[in-house]
């Protein structure tokens, strides 16, 4: 079972009755297409051992694998789940030249998404996830150096959310989950994932709930989500991040910013402290 199959299953379970039901169902269809695309992808390049993150898209020259994945996703996705604008984005991508697609991929990977490209970019992000997740799966975890940083040790991307482990030898540890290659790595709790500060961390949660809290940093005005698997075993970081966007609305009203979920792109802002 791939990470995408598990994610799609979780999205399908979360969607019914949700305020974002249509959106969650569409992303479920997209993730299901990712699952279909990753099987039997042609073998791609793997970098040798490099200093730092071996799959960092800034230093790694990518091959056409991700475009193969994109073509498969566009072909396999359940069109019934796509509203009209999403179908137009799908058609536009299918007709696009390889060169234009590479430009879009560069924009996504360098964090330079324009609002006008937000719909297309979701499909591009999904295809890049497939390519990077497969590469990451072939890495030797022992060779990675988490370096106590808030970036993925495999590809240098920011995390989508953190999960607190429920038991076993990792009891109570937080693991961050990569937004691009699905790698997870340990990161000290009660520490800002953006600026590393441990000074002015406080949490926000819906009154009476225990499975999710937003870890807010007054030093950089950034925040990230922390899920407590003890309280809800079926949690999946990316899916549950999307399903809990309501918490983001309330935390955003207090002035905090987060790293964008790869499927919620287009309106970017520097956190206040970084100006």
């Amino acid at each position: 079972m791939t990470v995408f199959a598990k994610r799609a299953e979780r999205l399908v379970a979360l969607a019914p009755g949700h305020e974002l039901e249509g959106f969650l169902k569409m992303i479920a269809a997209l993730v299901a297409a990712q699952h279909a695309a990753i099987a039997g992808l042609p073998p791609g390049m793997l970098p040798g051992r490099a200093a730092g993150a071996p799959l960092d898209p800034v230093t790694l020259k990518r091959d056409e694998t991700w475009r193969v994945a994109l073509a498969r996703i566009l072909e396999r996705i359940d069109v019934a789940a796509l509203p009209e604008p999403a179908q137009q984005a799908r058609a536009a991508l299918a007709a696009m030249s390889a060169g234009d697609l590479e430009v879009l991929a560069d924009r996504f990977l360098s964090g330079d998404v324009k609002p006008g490209q937000a719909a297309e970019m979701v499909f591009v992000a999904a295809a890049l996830q497939v390519a990077w997740t497969r590469m990451a799966a072939l890495l030797d975890a022992a060779q990675l150096d988490p370096d106590d940083a808030g970036e993925c040790p495999a590809c240098g991307s920011p995390p989508v959310a953190g999960m607190i482990a429920p038991g076993g030898t990792k009891f109570g540890h937080r693991h961050l989950h990569c937004s691009l290659c699905a790698t997870s790595w340990r990161y000290v709790r009660t520490r800002c994932v953006h600026c590393g500060s441990t000074d002015k961390i406080s949490f926000r949660q819906f009154a009476g709930t225990s499975y999710l809290r937003a870890e807010c940093c007054q030093a950089c005005q950034g925040y990230s989500k922390v899920f407590y698997v003890e309280s809800a075993r079926t949690l999946e970081p990316l899916a549950d991040d999307l399903a809990s966007l309501g918490l983001d609305v309330l935390v955003g009203e207090e002035g905090f910013s987060r790293v964008a979920n790869p499927f919620v792109l287009g309106v970017m802002a520097e956190p206040d402290g970084n100006n």
């Binding site: 959106f23 964090g111 719909a119 920011p158 987060r258 499927f263 919620v264 287009g266």
Partner: peptide
């Protein structure tokens, strides 16, 4: 890698202007 962090302040308006709205879920 810090330059690859795209920050977002989530609100009804920013969701509408993001890929959620762009994909067709305008009032969501």
């Amino acid at each position: 890698a810090v330059t690859r962090r795209q920050f977002m302040k989530v609100s009804a308006a920013s969701l509408a202007a993001s890929s959620v709205g762009a994909l067709g879920f305008v009032g969501a």
